[in-house]
Design a protein around this nucleic acid. Structure first.
Lengths: 393, 393
DNA sequence: ACTGTTAGTTAAACTTACTAACAAAGTTAT
DNA sequence: ATAACTTTGTTAGTAAGTTTAACTAACAGT
């Protein structure tokens, strides 16, 4: 763990002030030197000097005059969002989704590619490189401007170490993939679990905007959660926070060491499918269990309705536990949960109100498959705050 | 919410450097100017200037010479832990426990007092004032040196607002007690729940030392938990984090709006007592249910053993849920749980290993009734880091 | 006694932000 | 139209802090 230097000299002061000036420009979109001075309490000459330097460095631009407020017109400044670029990549099943974004996090180019199956680790790296090269060309950015790349994948990742221990869809197993990619791409790389990145995506651009205590609950092949506390992603002592599939919810079976957790076994998509065997004769590829169950229930199937209620109720148990421990202000439902109908949401909400004192807001995820890419881009953006851009220039 | 000024001038630098110098002295106990310079990367003249100022302010002292390392002997510096004092108070049942501590958190004087029952809010405040006056006299500190007071009580507190909404033992109901106390005592006051303060106590001086992801699980009249994540106390969006009594563990009963949670109802001390009615004929005041159950079980009572196992198992469910969500590195068992015998702990540990992938260390609380007072003192100590002492001087 | 080393201090240089004064470019009132 | 006032941005000099370089003090080993 690198301890940040706590001591400072005048250089530090300058850096801090520059950062704050940049922050003001980003926050206000367009702002004059005089207004920055008012906002930051820095003297006008000081702001001018800092701004001039940052214009030299290419981080800021003068973009015309503002309206007069009784005196000389202000020169408006803007952040140059095109100064650097960020790459994002998400592996979803056997497809690789990539994007290039500017410093605002806006996508400037995208591409998608099918991966050969079974996946070959080496080959996948080359696919990433090829995609990146193409995206850089499409977006008109140069490799020098690339700050880094965020990569999300289904599987078990150790973001802290930059390693992946289990990821069949990419063919990466127990490998220090971050290092390998950084060496090959020549830029910093962040590796993370796709649920974590989706969480981040919804937090910065989706339903999570404006909240600082958010839990993103995902039900798919497995059950997991992304946890944001006090505006910070929480990962746990060994990066296993949010592994809510292991909660003791549902019929407990003995001796299920390793593998999946109790909650996950019964109430993830495969778990529900198994329970639904008698009810849903056959489920076609690509359709949702919950949707099907809802259809059958509406058509009068008591069995379907019973199963649905059971699933909702146990999902609500999970939520109640999360809420009891973390007291979030927002719970985002994603994955299979987005198919819950209004009636279902209402039921769950009523149960929670009955069970726990401080019920958070419940909202379904809204960004769909974009969430992961947005999160990937923002994970890099977070690792490169304005601070580090100033160093780079 | 007050936004901390992010911009800086030379004053800020000086403050930062002074803080860091102070930090080094605190960390090393005794250290010379030269060594501080090496540790902090500040130049020797600079360190000398800062140290001299702090000696003037009474925060540091020269305490003799160190051994020569081939040249002139170093002058050793020490932090003046007696420069300021901190008061702590804990209400436990109908007794008020108070202390005065130095800046190291060491108790310099203590006193205990029985409160009249039923408690009268006004009267209790005067008891606090009286106790404080006496402790200041006993410890030889002056009121000017008092930095603040930490107060812990059983009940529902809103530390952020400094209010108490429900606390029968002190007679404070729905009152802005922090403000009242600050006005009466003339120093900053921190009000918090006793479980939170015990958590903090065990974290800084008990079994939690050296860990940064700790959950302190308390079973008493109710069930609650204190949560420390990444070295920071986590309170939740509406100060309701750690309200684990509301987890959905145990037989679910309908319509139990408000009041206590499902887990709490069945597995807190009163809950267990109720279940034990047939087993333990009568329980004398002041003894522990778990101890009694263990005794009966050892004496051959199958019923007692069954109930004990059931309790352990459900407590373990709670732990599993906590661990799944938070992935702490340490789980502190306190309250009634300290009476679990080794066999019981082992059982719980085995269950957890079976259920969840990353089992934390399980340890019983060790500080006993001291924990709360230590936490109370440290809550003030945290609110007055070296930063603010420098401002004060 | 001489050399080499460590601790602490003094003096000048350097970096940064601040204040005060000023120039530029507007608006408003007469 | 002109003068007075405002707001914006810049220039010049000052103040506060840290750093470097040199110096004194004090000590160990030979």
């Amino acid at each position: 763990m690198r301890v940040p230097r706590k001591t400072g000299n005048s250089k530090l002061v300058k850096k801090l002030n520059k950062e704050e000036v940049l922050q003001q420009v980003i926050q206000h979109g367009q702002i004059s030197r005089a207004d920055i001075s008012k906002q930051t309490q820095l003297s006008r000459p000081c702001v001018s000097a800092l701004v001039d330097e940052m214009i030299q460095e290419g981080l800021l631009q003068e973009v015309g005059m503002g309206d007069s407020r009784g005196g000389r017109k202000p020169i408006l400044l803007e952040y140059n969002y095109q100064a650097y670029a960020i790459a994002g990549a998400i592996f979803e099943g056997s497809t690789l989704d990539m994007t290039i974004a500017n410093l605002k996090g806006e996508f400037m180019a995208r591409c998608r590619k099918r991966l050969d199956q079974p996946a070959n680790g080496e080959r996948v790296i080359e696919d990433l490189v090829a995609g990146l090269t193409r995206l850089l060309a499409d977006s008109g950015m140069s490799h020098d401007q690339l700050l880094g790349m965020g990569v999300g994948l289904q599987g078990v990742t150790q973001r802290g170490q930059g390693t992946v221990s289990f990821s069949p869809s990419t063919g990466w197993m127990d490998s220090p993939i971050q290092e390998a990619l950084e060496a090959r791409l020549g830029v910093p790389v962040i590796i993370d679990n796709d649920v974590n990145l989706m969480t981040l995506g919804e937090y910065v651009r989706g339903v999570g905007v404006g909240h600082s205590h958010v839990v993103y609950m995902y039900v798919g092949t497995g059950i997991g959660a992304g946890v944001i506390l006090d505006g910070q992603f929480y990962r746990g002592s060994r990066e296993a926070a949010g592994e809510i599939g292991f909660m003791m919810i549902g019929p407990e079976q003995h001796r299920r060491n390793g593998a999946s957790g109790v909650f996950e076994t019964h109430y993830s998509v495969p778990g529900i499918m198994q329970q639904a065997e008698g009810v849903l004769s056959d489920l076609q590829e690509g359709s949702s269990v919950i949707e099907e169950l809802i259809l059958h229930a509406r058509a009068g199937s008591v069995q379907a309705q019973t199963l649905l209620d059971d699933v909702y109720r146990h999902w609500a148990y999970g939520m109640a536990n999360i809420v009891s421990i973390l007291n979030p202000e927002l719970l985002i439902l994603s994955g299979e949960m987005v198919h819950i109908d209004d009636e279902g949401v209402k039921k769950i909400q009523e149960w929670l109100t009955e069970w726990v004192p401080k019920v958070p807001c419940l909202k379904k995820a809204t960004l769909g498959e974009q969430a992961g890419l947005i999160g990937a881009v923002h994970s890099v953006l977070e690792a490169f705050p304005s601070t580090r851009l100033l160093d780079k220039a």
